[in-house]
Amino acid sequence: MVPTSYYILLSAALFTIGVLGVLIRRNAIVVFMAVELMLNAANLALVAYARERLSIDGQVLVFFVITVAAAEVAVGLALLVAIFRTKRTTDVDEVSTLRG
């Protein structure tokens, strides 16, 4: 078997890439993808620990995460479409009317 820590390190790397995606990319859809990537990284860690502890509860949690992620994507993308209809853009920097 592969040591669990390998999975954790991989999860950390993927999560960091997701964070960078949120911080660097301007395309709202790509930002969304980066968020999904972070969720997946977290899922991976959860599954790895579940195997480590031989506890299937971790897998149940991942199941829930995936379901909620699906709902979140649906609503998020609907929001994007709504914003696009008024702003004609998916650039998050353009959506900055709430600045001080």
């Binding site: 078997m1 592969v2 040591p3 669990t4 820590s5 954790i8 390190l9 950390a12 790397a13 999560f15 960091t16 890439i17 964070v19 960078l20 911080l23 660097i24 620990y49 195997r51 480590e52 031989l54």
Partner: peptide, 30 residues
């Protein structure tokens, strides 16, 4: 803020790696 973002990413990764190593579990039980 791009270099800052990269720096923060490195910091986050460092923290995560340190945490992973500190509580490093070994080979999963058979």
């Amino acid at each position: 803020q791009r270099p800052l973002a990269v720096a923060l990413g490195v910091g986050l990764l460092g923290v995560a790696v340190l945490a992973a190593l500190r509580y490093a579990p070994g080979i999963p039980p058979g």
